Amino acid sequence: MANLLIIDTATESCSVALKYDDQVYTRSEIAPRMHGELVLPMVEAVLAEAGIKLTQLDAIAYGQGPGAFTGIRICISVVQGLAFGADLPVIGISSLQALAQGLYQDKKQARVLAAIDARMGEVYWGQYEVDANGLMKLLDQERVCSPEFVTISDPDTSIVYSAVGTGWSTYAKVLSETLNVPTVIHDKPLYPFAEYMIPMAEYLYISGESYAAELAVPVYLRDDVAKKAKDL
């Protein structure tokens, strides 16, 4: 087992989770454009509730995106600062994977179509299926596209897919018509809360897949945003 701090600010939600000695402590708030003010006090709050210091942890995990450009940058900056100060490795987790994991955790849905509203008439899209370890694994690849161009791997009309995320709440009709497979749309979770990243983060840490803080990178999916980031 691993003792982990997880931070996510990639969407409208700002959330922090701490797993220590098999206890989980969480803070979250739906507060667009306030992540920079909220995230560090949330970190301090969960550490205080657990009665520990950051240096007592094994690693820090973070929501790497896709999501809001500014939110992802805030998350990376905060995580790198904390990790450098405490000499801890880091672990990146997909926002889409966290959404799928949350639906499995809350409702035991094994086949999930996760979509986050990417604005500009597009969605961030990923298809997931639970594996033998109870973790959501990506099928095909994550991408950003118009809802009219989403696809799924090996579509099967004999099974019911579970749909989740703000992309579905915004483009439910178009997505359903485009895919043309049996789909149940779940209204929760809407966001990739940090607590949903705990199983993946722990698995990756135990598997030796954590890395140095300076290697933490965002996942934007949009080429134009990535190019702008490189120019900063």
Results as ranks from 00 to 15, higher is better:
Leu5Gln: 07
Ile6Glu: 10
Ile6Gln: 02
Thr9His: 04
Ala10Asn: 02
Thr11Tyr: 07
Ser13Ile: 11
Cys14Arg: 03
Leu18Cys: 11
Asp21Val: 15
Gln23Ala: 13
Ala31Asp: 07
Ala31Ser: 12
Pro32Trp: 05
Arg33Lys: 15
Arg33Asp: 14
Met42Trp: 03
Val46Pro: 06
Leu47Trp: 04
Gly51Cys: 11
Thr55Gln: 15
Phe69Asn: 08
Gly71Asp: 14
Arg73Val: 05
Ile74Pro: 07
Ile76Phe: 09
Ser77Asn: 10
Val78Arg: 06
Gly81His: 01
Ala83Cys: 10
Gly85Ile: 06
Leu88Cys: 13
Ser94Thr: 06
Ala98Cys: 07
Ala100Gln: 10
Gly102Lys: 13
Gln105Leu: 15
Lys108Glu: 13
Ala115Phe: 11
Ala115Val: 01
Asp117Trp: 02
Arg119Phe: 06
Met120Phe: 12
Gly121Asn: 07
Val123Leu: 04
Asp131Lys: 13
Ala132Gly: 15
Asn133Thr: 12
Leu138Thr: 10
Leu139Gly: 09
Ser146Asn: 09
Ile152Met: 02
Ala163Trp: 00
Thr166Lys: 00
Gly167Ser: 06
Thr170Ser: 14
Thr178Asp: 08
Thr183Ile: 15
Ile185Lys: 07
Asp187Tyr: 07
Leu190Phe: 02
Ala194Val: 03
Glu195Lys: 15
Ala201Asp: 01
Tyr205Ile: 00
Tyr205Met: 05
Ser210Tyr: 07
Tyr211Gly: 13
Leu215Cys: 14
Ala216Arg: 06
Val219Cys: 11
Tyr220Gln: 06
Leu221Arg: 01
Arg222His: 00
Arg222Asp: 01
Arg222Val: 11
Lys228Met: 13
